[in-house]
């Protein structure tokens, strides 16, 4: 049953996100979708390559500032701006990647944290003349082609298409030899080296790719909100994407989507009812680490109905 479902999963994801519409406003639903793209980019590093980054907001911020600055200074065309933002985030990733991917575990997390802190400083203080510092700056996009992205409904459709594209790309990527190699690096990097692969190059490529997708998410957020502030590159917000990835289940596209939606639901709605939001987040993280490591999708996918039946399994 699952195999057949899996063939149409892009359509199913689209349907599931359309179900959000009756409960949410368009802008909010778009926000959910964009966050899911961000979680997917994080999961490429954490779930597939096994590197926990504590500084992924840097790439989101690079994309967010990239799109705003391009729209402000060069051309208000939204497509060109988004492309520039992706390129900018990828460039940041390409620049920092060689330093970051040589490390593993704690050092990787901390180095990314440090990079993020530098980025935050650059956006907030050093380049405040260009970025507007604490106040941020607004981005105005022109109407390009037949789509008016200022219309929230069109923006929703556009972002949903972007999410589906990202999901499709991730699906292809993780099933490709490159994706399998990444998972091998997660399991045992030394053995991959033994097989003659230059793991550094693959890790670097994955890092740049993850940065680019995160930058994509950042650019789309600006499209949705219309202004950028240093909170898009705030170090302390890294825990959000980690939480989302864990709650959904790391190392799976569906897990990332579930985690993204669940986290956004919690942070948007529960936060209004629970005054001590950070404490709730902390307790949730502890619970996930000590009890439910597989996350929601990890638990769902172990249910009997969904387990793909393997050939030769005596049944």
């Amino acid at each position: 049953m699952t195999e057949r479902l899996r063939r149409f999963d892009i359509l199913l994801i689209a349907g599931a996100f359309l179900l959000l519409l009756p409960v949410l406003k368009f802008q909010r639903a778009t926000d959910f979708i964009i966050f899911c793209i961000f979680v997917l980019s994080f999961d490429l590093l954490y779930g597939y390559m096994g590197r926990l980054s504590f500084g992924h907001m840097l790439f989101l911020g690079a994309g967010a500032y990239g799109v705003t600055l391009f729209a402000d200074r060069v051309s208000p065309n939204p497509y060109l701006s988004i492309l520039f933002a992706i390129a900018a985030a990828a460039a940041v990733g390409a620049l920092l990647g060689p330093i970051a991917v040589r490390t593993t575990g704690a050092a990787f997390a901390l180095i990314n944290l440090a990079f993020n802190q530098i980025g935050h400083f650059l956006a907030l203080i050093a380049f405040a003349r260009f970025t507007g510092g604490e106040d941020g700056m607004s981005a105005v996009f022109s109407k390009a082609g037949f789509l008016d992205l200022q219309d929230k409904r069109v923006a929703f459709g556009f972002c949903l298409a972007c999410l589906l594209l990202t999901c499709w790309g991730m699906k292809r990527l993780t099933a490709s030899p490159f994706g399998i190699l990444l998972r091998m690096i997660k399991e045992n990097e030394t053995r991959v080296k033994f097989l003659g692969y230059d793991t550094f190059r693959y890790k670097w490529a994955a890092y740049v790719l993850s940065a680019a997708v995160a930058g994509f998410a950042g650019a789309l957020s600006i499209l949705n909100y219309g202004y950028v502030t240093p909170s898009f590159i705030d170090t302390n917000r890294n825990v959000e994407v980690i939480f989302a990835s864990l709650i959904g289940g790391a190392g799976s596209i569906y897990g990332s989507l579930v985690g993204g939606v669940v986290f956004m639901t919690i942070s948007n709605y529960l936060a209004t009812y629970i005054p001590r939001w950070e404490m709730f987040l902390g307790l949730g993280l502890l619970l996930l680490v000590f009890r439910f490591r597989a996350g929601i999708w990890g638990m769902v996918s172990t249910l009997e109905v969904f387990r793909p039946r393997r050939e030769g399994e005596g049944r």
């Binding site: 902390g282 993280l285 680490v289």
Partner: peptide, 8 residues
């Protein structure tokens, strides 16, 4: 993650 949660 766990010690960060404690910090939060």
């Amino acid at each position: 993650i766990a010690t960060y949660a404690v910090l939060l």
